[in-house]
Amino acid sequence: MFSTGQMIFAGLFVIAFATAIFITYQKDKKLHAKNYKGAVWVAVAFFVFIAILFAIKYTLKN
């Protein structure tokens, strides 16, 4: 389906992209810690809300 050259290119691209993302994240780590201090609690609240919706759906279905 894919040629050998395409597979090599895809592999190298994934490695280069992941490396670039990792390096960029390491540079911005302190800035993100300062600006997005409460983001974890927003994510937790979102997942709790979704869990409550599923619980309501399950209890009303039966």
Rank of each mutant, 00 (worst) to 15 (best):
I15M: 11
G5C: 06
L12Q: 11
L12F: 15
F9Y: 13
G11I: 07
K27Q: 06
D28Q: 15
M1K: 03
A51R: 02
A39K: 07
I15N: 06
M1N: 06
I56Q: 06
T24F: 05
F9Q: 12
I21P: 03
F17S: 00
Y36Q: 08
L60S: 15
A39I: 04
I8V: 10
A16Q: 07
S3I: 01
A20S: 08
M7Q: 15
I15C: 06
A10L: 02
G5D: 12
A43N: 03
V14N: 04
T19R: 03
A39L: 05
A33R: 06
W41C: 02
K27P: 01
K37Q: 10
F47Q: 09
V14R: 02
G11N: 09
I50A: 13
A20E: 01
A43L: 12
Y25I: 05
K30T: 12
H32P: 03
K37Y: 11
I52Q: 08
L60N: 14
A45E: 05
A33W: 02
K34P: 01
N62P: 09
A10F: 05
T4D: 07
K37N: 07
T4Y: 03
Y58T: 10
A45L: 04
K37D: 08
L60V: 14
F46D: 07
K57F: 13
T59K: 13
I52V: 15
N62S: 15
K61H: 14
A10S: 06
W41I: 13
D28Y: 14
F47W: 04
A51Y: 02
Q26Y: 09
A51K: 05
G11E: 01
D28E: 14
V40Y: 11
M1S: 01
L12A: 13
L53E: 15
F2D: 07
A33C: 05
N35G: 05
V44A: 11
K29D: 11
F22Q: 01
I23T: 09
Y58A: 15
G38I: 13
A55M: 12
F9T: 02
F22H: 06
Y25G: 09
A43M: 10
K29Y: 08
F46L: 12
K27N: 07
V14K: 01
I56W: 12
G11C: 05
N35P: 03
A10R: 02
S3K: 00
A55S: 14
F9G: 03
I23D: 00
A18E: 01
K29H: 11
S3M: 08
Y25E: 12
F47T: 11
A43F: 13
K37A: 10
M1D: 02
K37S: 04
A55Q: 10
Q6R: 00
A43P: 00
F49T: 14
L53C: 15
F46E: 09
A39T: 04
K30F: 08
I52R: 04
I52D: 07
G5V: 01
K27T: 12
N62E: 14
I50Q: 09
I50L: 13
F9E: 06
G5L: 07
V48Q: 00
T19I: 09
